[in-house]
Nucleic acid binder design. Structure first.
Length: 507
RNA sequence: GGGCCUCUAGCUCAAUCGGCAGAGCAGCGGACUUUUAAUCCGCGGGUUCGGGGUUCGAUCCCCCGGGGGCCCA
């Protein structure tokens, strides 16, 4: 930076200085005053020999009032500040949430540096303190300063630490949430531990991680409305992917027999406590696997993740209740559970008219393009899902709604597909993949007809995907699981709490 | 998409029937060499989400719009 720029910044600390709230104006004025006094406000580097946690680990047992004899430099964000005359206390915080008190006294740093500490430092600032590790008269582990320096000034005040910010403020300004709320930092670490656990489980089973296109000329692999975008160079309409499935299957055709991807999908739908327009998903495919082997893999992924974050397959949810993800999970069939809930036999052969009548009875909305399979699934979601609290694999879904799934080997009209439900939300899905290119083409054609009838979630015919499959695809099992929902499953949090920076409407 | 609730100081929230817009924390000035949400004295701080209407007078009532939450579809 040139001197000219530096002086310009000193003169105009922030735009619209006149209109600033009082506390920002005062902090900006301090910034300018410190700079004009020749001291840096944002030095490139400050003294720091130890993290706060390291000091605590090394000297946590120091007796009340004792001195350690060790001279250190620590730095951190000022979370509390108390001025007791010729002595100041400040509590510094590190990124991992650990805190340590520093004491600045007239004897230790001199009257001038003490006065500067009082006048220059605000809550939220970063400071560096050099001095001896001691224990205060009240037994608080501290660094007794012999010098100090400002490490970075905060121009905005911290929110009050003793009350939670509103949910909206927490989501809109996650950086502030992270500063003041340890639980917010914990979620970030928990999510990282889950992702790491997933990769370890996959690697232990010799799955290869790949990245497939997010910008696609044709969206597919799921039933959802896509985001559209445009590529200038090719003057081409592109879609943000709604699922990686069709590319991962191309990889299996090519001989990547065990393959997985953990990455983002985009669905142009609403946002609520269980849906985010962009969400992270795990998908995996295994040649010579099937929906049973994928169920076993999925259970292992979830249980290993629970062990990684909770140390147990029984996790404690945000509301304090325990939830058991351990052991084998129950398995039911979709038509069987629906029949039981409806009090009458319903199969893939049940006539549409009968299902329409049942839908009317239970206030389930019926769109004209719904066939009997889609209707049965809608009824299932209304009548059965709310009661699926314990982890449950629901098996054998109608062909009509399972465009990419192999026909069941013994039950007519259904496919080898399961959905995994946890606490009544859908956590994942698994298939014996459809690998017959002729049937796949027929299913795509049926989807095209549904699209023509008004179903804007219907899949489009993907000719290149069919071409790949026509080269021969081995019998394959596949699974998919929402990463954000897996976090929800092991923590009990809402989806917007599991995503670090969820989309919010502009203010 | 529909219904209900909500938006006030930096943050979290009050404000009676429509009658001078308040508190706690935070901030500013002062005191204090051992504080732990320190204490004591003093003092500031507001586009009450935006626009319009009713009224002598609107945070409050009405209309339109926006953000957020919950429930329903």
């Amino acid at each position: 930076m040139t001197e000219q720029q530096a002086s310009h910044q000193a003169e105009a600390p922030v735009p619209n200085g006149e209109d600033l709230p009082e506390q920002m104006r005062i902090r900006s004025e301090k910034r300018a005053r410190i700079l004009s006094g020749g001291k840096p406000v944002y030095p490139v580097q400050v003294e720091r020999t130890h993290s706060l946690a390291e000091i605590r680990a090394a000297h946590g047992e120091l007796e009340t009032g004792a001195s350690s004899g060790e001279i250190v430099s620590v730095a951190g964000r000022v979370m509390r500040f108390r001025d007791a005359g010729k002595l100041c206390f400040a509590v510094l915080q590190d990124g991992d949430g650990s805190q340590l008190q520093v004491m600045v006294t007239a004897n230790g740093v001199g009257a001038e540096a003490l006065a500067a500490f009082k006048s220059d430092v605000d809550l939220g600032d970063f400071v560096s303190v050099h001095g001896e590790v001691i224990s205060s008269k009240r037994g608080e582990l501290s660094v007794m300063a012999d010098r100090w320096a400002l490490a970075a000034k905060a121009l905005r005040p911290l929110p009050v630490l003793h009350k939670e910010m509103s949910e909206e403020a927490r989501v809109r300004q996650r950086y502030v949430d992270l500063i003041v709320r340890p639980a917010a930092r914990d979620v970030v670490r928990t999510r990282a531990a889950v992702v790491r656990s997933l990769r370890e489980t996959f690697h232990a089973r010799e799955f290869i991680e790949v990245e497939t296109p997010m910008l696609q000329t044709l969206h597919g692999g799921a039933a959802a409305r896509p985001f559209r975008t445009h590529m200038n160079a090719f003057d081409l309409e592109l879609f943000l992917r709604i699922a990686p499935e069709l590319f991962l299957k191309r990889a299996v055709v090519g001989g990547i027999d065990r393959v997985f991807e953990i990455n983002r999908n985009f669905r142009n739908e609403g946002a609520d406590s269980t849906h985010s327009p962009e969400f992270a998903m795990i998908e995996a495919y295994e040649a010579y696997g099937n929906y049973d082997t994928m169920a076993e893999l999925t259970r292992s992924l979830v249980q290993s993740a629970a062990l990684a974050v909770a140390g147990s397959t029984t996790v404690t949810l945000a509301d304090g209740t325990d939830y058991d993800l351990g052991g084998d999970w129950q398995q039911v069939t979709m038509y069987g559970s629906l029949s039981q809930a409806a009090g009458r036999e319903i199969t893939a052969a049940t006539e549409r008219a009968e299902l329409v009548e049942l839908a009317a009875k239970h206030d389930v909305k019926v769109e004209p393009w719904y066939g009997p399979g889609k209707l049965a699934e809608e009824l299932f979601e209304e009548l059965v899902v709310p009661d699926l609290y314990a982890p449950t694999f629901v098996r054998d879904y109608p062909e009509e709604t399972s465009t990419l799934v192999a026909p069941h080997r013994s039950t007519p009209g259904v496919t080898e597909k399961w959905d995994l439900y946890v606490r009544s939300f859908e956590l994942g899905t698994g298939y014996s993949e459809l690998v017959d290119p002729v049937i796949q083409r027929e299913r795509f054609v049926a989807q095209a007809q549904a699209a023509a009838a008004g179903d804007d979630e219907a899949m489009r015919l993907d000719e290149d995907f069919l071409r790949a499959m026509e080269h021969g695809m081995p019998p394959t099992g596949g699974m998919g699981m929402g990463l954000d929902r897996l976090l929800m499953a092991v923590t009990g949090l809402g989806i917007r709490e599991t995503i670090l920076f969820p989309l919010v409407k502009p203010e």
